[in-house]
Amino acid sequence: MTNGQKLTTIKLGRAAAVAAIAALALTSCAANESGSGTSTDSASSSGATGTLVGIGASSQGSAQESWIAGFQTANPDATINYDPQGSGAGRESFISGAAAFAGSDSALSDDELAGTFGSCAPDTTAIDLPVYISPIAVIFNIEGVDELNLDSETLANIFNGSITSWDDEAIAALNPDATLPSTSITAVHRSDDSGTTKNFADYLNSTAPDAWGEEPSDTFPFSGGEGAQGTSGVVDAVTNGTGTIGYADASRAGDLGVAKIKVGDEFVGYTAEAAAAVVEGSPLVEGREDNDIAIKLDRQTTDPSHYPLVLVSYAIACQEYADADQGALAKAYLGYIASDEGQKVSAESAGSAPLSADLSAKVLAAIETIS
């Protein structure tokens, strides 16, 4: 069983609870010393009870583990289960009512919003809540190559199958100081429906539309390359292959090589700060309900302090739950993960970029309306 298929269920005993509280306290202290703001006591003040099931994005996996630990430590009568099956599976499970909330690297579509949701009260709808911001890393494993520069057109042609060898002249032109082997390229993509794929495709379609030529979707659009299940599957395939390249949430890049992408006239590596800068400068999607916070990312920025290959991962919840107890627990848990404390925990455990003050205020205000 891969990490992407693993059910994250954390139940803490008394000793583990004490250790987790200490760890969270240290996390908050370290974050405060860095000047990122003061933490809240939202986890400890909710008094939440019951069991809440979430299914969705594997990009959120590490963050969810930490959020669950923090929330359950402070609320020992609550159990949160999160199964990182992928964004598409998460939205499907939420729509059917198999999950009380979904994690998704893309917001609900207009068609999905026009439908019904199994856990929601009749004649009510769902809302998208951005809770996790992270760069997408272009990871690679090429013998003898430690650094790699790629522009969006070349990256698109690698993944659409037009460029098949690492010593291709387009790659060589971007890496004049590298010794590129004649090794065949194995481009690894997600085999499951994935919001990470949709964000990757949205970046390439926005910045290299002639080379990519496909509308962004959760399904990888080309038949070539190698498919792998979940974030962990892509990372494993790139790690264990030869001449491999893939895309994954940056928190999972590990020791693999990570390509720099061209932004304006410079090649830029990912940072949480550069990812947050793109989100901060991007508008909300128009035409949504007041509490539905979907972001239209600015992929075409030429500011080298921005990293446009970024994903915003959402918690998708009911505006009003059919079961009031589920609504109260969802409101408490989502309020914790969007809080200053929850965002610091995610930054520490998963390297994510905390929500900006303005975006955090919008998200927390929306969560307050959940019932």
Rank of each mutant, 00 (worst) to 15 (best):
D192F: 11
T219L: 08
Q343E: 07
G335N: 09
A102W: 00
G335H: 00
I293S: 04
F159G: 12
T197D: 11
T302P: 09
Y270S: 11
A201N: 11
I136G: 10
D202L: 06
T40H: 02
A17D: 05
F101A: 00
T197Q: 06
A63C: 12
A170N: 00
G224K: 07
S34L: 11
S232L: 01
R91H: 03
I245W: 01
I10P: 06
V258G: 07
H306K: 15
I293H: 04
I337Y: 04
L174N: 13
A23T: 15
A347E: 00
T301I: 13
R288A: 10
N157P: 00
G246I: 00
G351L: 12
A237F: 07
F220C: 08
V53D: 07
G281H: 13
N3V: 13
A294P: 12
I68K: 01
G264W: 14
A25L: 08
G97V: 08
L204N: 02
S360R: 15
D210P: 08
G254K: 09
R299L: 10
L174K: 15
F220L: 08
G224S: 13
A361F: 10
L52A: 00
T244Q: 05
D249Q: 07
A330V: 10
G47R: 07
T369S: 15
N32C: 03
L311C: 07
L309T: 04
A57D: 12
G269E: 14
F71Y: 09
W212D: 00
E273D: 15
G224N: 14
P308S: 10
G327S: 10
G37M: 09
S66D: 08
A330F: 04
A350Q: 04
A31S: 14
G47V: 05
A89E: 13
D323V: 12
L148Q: 03
E289W: 00
V268W: 06
G287M: 12
G233A: 05
S339L: 08
A170Y: 02
F101D: 01
T116D: 09
A350S: 11
V145S: 01
F140G: 00
T79Y: 01
A272S: 14
K362Q: 15
G161A: 11
S58P: 03
Y314S: 05
F159N: 12
L311S: 14
Q60Y: 02
S152N: 14
A98L: 13
G243P: 10
A253Q: 12
L204T: 00
N3P: 09
Q5F: 15
F71T: 01
I171K: 11
A25M: 08
G70T: 08
T196Q: 01
A237S: 15
V363F: 07
D177V: 02
V234I: 14
S346M: 03
I80D: 01
S360L: 06
G161W: 12
N205D: 12
N160E: 03
G335C: 02
G342L: 02
E169P: 00
S371Y: 02
Q229S: 10
L297N: 01
T244E: 09
S62V: 11
D105Q: 05
L113R: 15
T51D: 07
S36V: 15
G97L: 07
A20T: 15
N149H: 09
L129K: 02
A277M: 05
S162Y: 04
F267Q: 01
G233I: 05
D41G: 10
T2D: 15
G213P: 10
A63F: 11
S45I: 04
A98H: 06
L297T: 12
G90W: 03
